[in-house]
Design a binder for these strands. Sequence first.
DNA 1: CCACATTTAGTTGTGCACAACTCAATCGTG
DNA 2: CACGATTGAGTTGTGCACAACTAAATGTGG
Lengths: 152, 152
Amino acid sequence: MTRTDELQLDRQVCFALYSASRAVTQLYRPLLDALGLTYPQYLVMLVLWEHGPTTVKDLGEALELDSGTLSPLLKRLESAGMVLRRRRATDERSVEVDVTEKGAALRTRAAGVPRTIACATGLDAAGLTELRRILTTLTETVGETQLTADVL
Amino acid sequence: MTRTDELQLDRQVCFALYSASRAVTQLYRPLLDALGLTYPQYLVMLVLWEHGPTTVKDLGEALELDSGTLSPLLKRLESAGMVLRRRRATDERSVEVDVTEKGAALRTRAAGVPRTIACATGLDAAGLTELRRILTTLTETVGETQLTADVL
DNA sequence: CCACATTTAGTTGTGCACAACTCAATCGTG
DNA sequence: CACGATTGAGTTGTGCACAACTAAATGTGG
């Protein structure tokens, strides 16, 4: 084992990414607990607050999540009284999701969350913007790549 | 809704982080499938390959995972024949984990994984190092922060 | 109009994450 | 030594992620 070993854990940017993502989710937890939301549920609410009634398909595209994740999540949000779901009259395949009054009321209480999180990251506005740019580019790049085991 | 709305999804660095982390895990999937590992199992194997026999506690510290995650994961790695677990003679509370011959043999086949992933990110060595530095700092900063709902 | 392909949600099964808990082994202090 | 506190691993329960599948609604070419 040398310091330049390709498999060394601390050299892996992917572990840093995995680790940072979990750490930030933990940062949200106490804030979102107070709102009765998990982090993925909060992301769904962000889309609904921003866009109004949205189909499951469009939520999936916005968050890059499939129906296997969204269907049970939305069911939980519905039983918590945050959202309503109804089949579209014009296309019975689609289900439109919208916030309830309770869900809409939550928006005010959630207003301070992003700023609180941003402060806790210790990054300034420029640092946050730069990090977001790098990560967005990274997501797009790897999203287009289809690796197979052959490359090994 | 204005373009400067604090809750706008596309302005959230945290979503970018969450999204990038999942995208990169997806990038690993075909490579690790060929090795019979999941991404968290691969991380455990990296630690074992690097450090040799390691207790569950030390694995947890290296990967920032608790026993609730590691215990079942290690049980699956054990039934896959990749690792062995045994109570330490000097302290029966600790369980030491080590790779089997099969697990050790996997290391050679895994050698190309980091480079393959690095290429697929589209980032050069400097970009990867810089991203890793930012993320590591971020993880450390938020790890020290204890938020409560009071700040809202 | 009709057979077949496509689209959209939902279901099932596996494997993390993580909080909260249990239990046994060990440590520390009087 | 006694005994309460601490440590280390494991268990239980909830909620994502995601692959693979099902089923119903809609689109489409002949």
